[in-house]
Design a protein around this nucleic acid. Structure first.
Length: 422
RNA sequence: GUGGGUGUAGCUCAGUUGGUCAGAGCGUCUGGUUGUGGCCCAGAAGGUCGUGGGUUCAAGUCCCAUCACUCACCCCA
């Protein structure tokens, strides 16, 4: 028989690994609510055009990485490759601006990008993130960075690096673009092939090139932060002093350019040395023009997105276990068929009372069942065989010390109560 | 799309210049006195050595192809 395999770039998250995921998700919910962000959930797919318009036609994501298809109604559909555009779409479509002037939203979502998989990069992957829609104040950017840092800190992660930059607004960016092109043009033929292509389409990216000779050529290159307009410069200055005020360490990286077209002013990135080549664990920034681009009223906004697989990889490399491993409170071993009703009722009663309990479902020998109880790290084992059926008492074994006592069937809950397991 | 690496029991891997090479550890199962775990001991189950060709008297072991996985480039979370 043919066996099925998962699609390339996808993963099965199995126990016990799934416990790490649940712990991380719980932590995200907790911190987000603490910062007064509220969860938003959007569909896994959207009209293709939403992403083409929102993210930018020329970006790698849109031009070559989207999972797009035509549905039976001949509509162009795309599995969402990122969350900011869908969130903004939902904000506009649901007229959320009419409820109140500012919305602080967060999400945990599965995203899809058809790239070649490698360490820390999958085709179906997960991000959590937040968006503050409605505020142009640098305070919103500061809170956003603070929020991301707070979540990482809470996981116990160490050695993360925060990089920040300002990419200005379209006016100062276009002005800078010409200045930059003028600087590069005389030496353009010395740059790598990729950069030659970028020269017209996205010259800012040339500054971000990792090619050694390009890095050399760029050493004296002008920096956008030196050419910001007054408004953008002031915004950037306030961002930095705000981070200083919170004691959040950052590194200014004038060459930090993000891959999505919608960013304005603030951009930032958090990286970890513990990862391989895909070391960006979080990226974000301000996107004041996206709402208009998607057909809404001009609405300033800022946000970030963080990769959960990558975060979990770093946690693993730093040997941080977020999911406390707890064994069972009670494991019930039965040896007689007649014990079935008592086992079932006891389990129901104890589970309702909040104890973690289980039983053997394979009709195994008592020895095998004891081994199972041990494997499950059960604290107490209740044994019920012929003798116990006759006496109306469980043989109760404390697995931590091997001491065994007898407890009446109906007294078992009181007994456990006294042990203060919960 | 481009390049590198790897594919042997459920898992992690040994398998020398082609000729007891089909193995180890872990895991699983069974047993080590009557109805009792962990440690220890004994035993068992489990693999057409990714797949398909080829070379050879003989191929996990060489050659070719193919598939899968993986890492890196590009880019990104």
């Amino acid at each position: 028989m043919k066996q099925f395999k998962r699609i390339k770039g996808t993963q099965d998250i199995l126990p016990p690994e799934s416990r790490q995921w649940a712990a991380l998700e719980n932590l995200i919910h907790e911190i987000m609510e603490r910062y007064n962000f509220h969860e938003i959930r959007t569909p896994v797919f959207e009209q293709t055009e939403l992403f083409a318009r929102g993210i930018g036609q020329l970006t790698d994501i849109v031009s070559k990485e989207m999972y797009s298809f035509q549905d039976r109604g001949k509509k162009q559909i795309t599995l969402k490759p990122e969350m900011t555009a869908p969130v903004m779409r939902a904000f506009i479509e649901n007229k959320m601006y009419a409820q109140q002037p500012i919305h602080k939203l967060y999400y945990i979502a599965s995203l899809f990008r058809q790239e070649k998989p490698q360490a820390g990069r999958l085709r179906q992957f997960h991000q959590f993130g937040a968006e503050t829609i409605g505020s142009a104040d640098p305070a919103a950017d500061i809170e956003m960075i603070d929020l991301a840092v707070a979540i990482y800190k809470k996981t116990g992660l160490k050695d993360l690096q925060l990089s920040i930059n300002s990419v200005g607004d379209p006016l100062c960016r276009n002005r800078f673009r010409k200045i930059l092109q003028d600087y590069i043009r005389p030496n353009l033929n010395l740059y790598c092939e990729d950069c030659k292509k970028r020269f017209e389409t996205n010259p800012m990216r040339i500054l971000d090139c990792k090619n050694e000779s390009c890095i050399k050529l760029n050493e004296q290159a002008p920096k956008l932060t030196d050419y910001l307009c007054d408004g953008c410069a002031e915004h950037y200055k306030q961002l930095k002093s705000g981070l200083d005020n919170l004691g959040i360490a950052y590194r200014e990286n004038p060459y930090l350019v993000r891959g999505l077209d919608y960013y304005t002013r603030t951009v930032f990135e958090i990286t970890s040395g513990a990862l391989g080549a895909q070391n960006a664990v979080c990226g974000g920034g301000r996107y004041d023009l996206l709402a208009e681009e998607l057909g809404g009223m001009p609405t300033p906004a800022t946000g970030f997105a963080a990769g959960m697989e990558r975060l979990l990889l770093v946690l693993q490399s730093q040997q941080i276990d977020m999911a406390e491993t707890t064994g069972l409170d009670v494991f019930i071993i039965g040896m007689e068929n007649d014990a079935r009703p008592i086992i079932d009722k006891t389990l129901l009663k104890l589970r309702n009372a909040g104890y973690r309990c289980d039983q053997d479902l394979l009709k195994r020998s008592i020895k095998a069942q004891m081994r199972e109880a041990n494997r499950q790290a059960a604290r107490y084992v209740l044994i019920i065989g012929e003798n116990e059926l006759n006496s109306g008492k469980f043989a109760v074994k404390d697995m931590s010390n091997g001491i065994q006592t007898e407890i009446k069937f109906e007294d078992i809950e009181n007994f456990l109560e006294q042990q203060k397991l919960i």
